[in-house]
Amino acid sequence: MEDYKFLFKVVLVGNAGVGKTCLVRRFTQGMFPPGQGATIGVDFMIKTIEIDNEKVKLQIWDTAGQERFRSITQSYYRSAHALILIYDITSQPTFDCLNDWLREIDEYANNRVLRVLVGNKIDKEDREIPSHVGQDFAQRHDMRYLETSAKQADNVEKLFVQIASELMEQAKSKGISSDSPQSLPFNTRTSKSINDYCCNR
């Protein structure tokens, strides 16, 4: 038997140094790597979690924030089921860039992709973006909002679980058992459709 019922692709985006890789590491490996270097290109992690007694496999693509890798990271947006947009609550510039990121997402990603805004590094004292500002921004752009700390593991688990369950809801409501892949919420042309994986032969 397959050891999971759903497979979702999650892509993390955001400025360089906001903590994308740390967040992923915390979630998948349960550790906080101090002095993490800049990601090059794209990194890949996998994690299977259990929601409502159903196994969900998350493919997590951790992209580089640096401008020069933009061309390759963009190519990963399209196949994503969920996009996590991250900024650093202690750094105004990373927040200011959110609009640019959204524009990029609109351009390259599937338009039905689930988008989540995350303010990272809440463990830090010198907060610059109050949480309601982030909340407002998320609401305005129809996104989920969450504040996390990869260092202290605050909300990290919750973040991914939320995403997974939401995607699962979506998938179920669109009729996962149906045979027509078109009814799936995701672009079946370019991504591996969920159907490929949710079979129990």
Partner: peptide, 17 residues
């Protein structure tokens, strides 16, 4: 048969750090 996972994965391996 679909290869897009492979493409994605191999590409990311190319950037391994």
């Amino acid at each position: 048969r679909r290869y897009d996972f492979f493409v994605s994965k191999f590409s990311s391996m190319c950037h391994n750090n």
